[in-house]
């Protein structure tokens, strides 16, 4: 019996992970156990078994946004069922729990997974390494913990109506690890749309001299009907876009129709999060900046002169 345990805080991502599980096992999967952390609505409990989900594991006491509580639920199920595969999303929660779970299972683990291949009973994982300069093929032993990048697999679909609803299993709370206590918790401010979902993203980099100047990026985004994102230093060091995520290997990955990178040098750690953009436009005053070679259209110009002109042209000003 080959079984996979799947968890993501996001329902759509769960369906992607179910597809990934099926690819990982070369179709030889006997069943997926889907962990639902937190109160589960009626609708989620009626997930059809034809999506591949055999059991819905409900941990009502668990909080899907709290990595420690997710870890506790996963461990409780793993201790009981010892699944062959554990599939997670490669975000901070997934990366937090992946190592410990792999060591617990005594198996392999890969994070930032972009592709899977299964042949002759062995699993090969593709992941981005060397700051985005390489895609490594890694052969992973089972049991395996795989943290998958969002959007890499098509969501699983119910095939036909046979089989009815998946079985629902309630998971008892094994009790908290009292050595770790969350003493304060507050939601981060979000500045607008989720970048992962945006069709057009204007990225601001260190080429912007002052926080106020980001106004230009926002105006450009508005003219293009898009969202504003930033490189890591602008968010993490300078806090110019408080609470938002940066784009890159340690931040979020975007896959918009159009990315306009303004005052961004294009270091691999940044580009690794933007490689899936369909069209990349770079605005940089340095013709030798790496972003110039990594873009479809590069405008070599001072952003302070070029952006106002571009915004005007886009708005139809003649």
């Amino acid at each position: 019996m080959t079984r996979a345990l799947v968890f993501s805080p996001d329902d759509d991502r769960c369906l992607e992970l179910i597809s990934a599980a099926s690819v990982a096992t070369g179709g030889g999967l006997d069943g997926v156990d889907l962990l639902l952390a937190g109160p589960a609505g009626e609708e989620r409990l009626r997930t059809p078994s034809s999506t591949g989900v055999g059991r819905i594991v409900v941990a009502e006491w668990s909080d899907p946004t709290d990595a420690f509580s997710v870890d506790r639920a996963l461990r409780a199920w793993i201790g009981r069922e010892r699944p062959d595969y554990v599939l997670l999303t490669s975000d901070r929660i997934g990366r937090q729990v992946a190592g410990g779970l792999a060591q617990l299972l005594g198996g392999g683990a890969s994070t930032e997974v972009v592709g899977l291949e299964s042949a002759g009973g062995s699993l090969t994982v593709k992941r981005m390494v060397l700051g985005g300069k390489g895609i490594a093929s890694e052969e992973v032993d089972t049991p395996a913990v795989l943290a998958i990048q969002p959007g890499r697999f098509p969501p699983a679909e119910a095939s036909g109506t046979a089989g009815g609803a998946a079985e629902v299993v309630r998971l008892e709370d094994p009790g908290a690890d009292h050595r770790v206590r969350i003493v304060e918790r507050r939601p981060r401010e979000r500045s607008g749309v989720r970048l992962e979902d945006a069709e057009v993203v204007v990225v601001a980099g260190r080429g912007f001299e002052r926080r106020e100047d980001l106004r230009l990026a926002f105006e450009l985004a508005e003219a293009l009907g898009g969202a504003v994102g930033a490189t890591r230093p602008l968010v993490a060091d300078l806090g110019w876009l408080p609470g938002s995520d940066w784009i890159g290997i340690s931040g979020v990955r975007i896959s918009p129709r159009l990315m306009v990178a303004v005052g961004v040098s294009g270091q691999m750690q940044f580009l690794a999060g933007a490689l899936d953009s369909k069209v990349i436009v770079a605005v940089n005053k340095d013709p030798n900046a790496p972003i110039v070679g990594a873009s479809d259209y590069a405008v070599v110009a001072d952003l302070y002169e070029f952006l106002p002109a571009l915004i005007e042209v886009l708005r139809g000003g003649r």
């Binding site: 198996g107 981005m128 093929s137 992973v140 110039v292 590069a298």
Partner: peptide
Amino acid sequence: GVRVSSVVSPRVERRGVV
């Protein structure tokens, strides 16, 4: 638990219009 079998550089096909 994990063996790296190969590493290749990704092909970036960009138009490169300056």
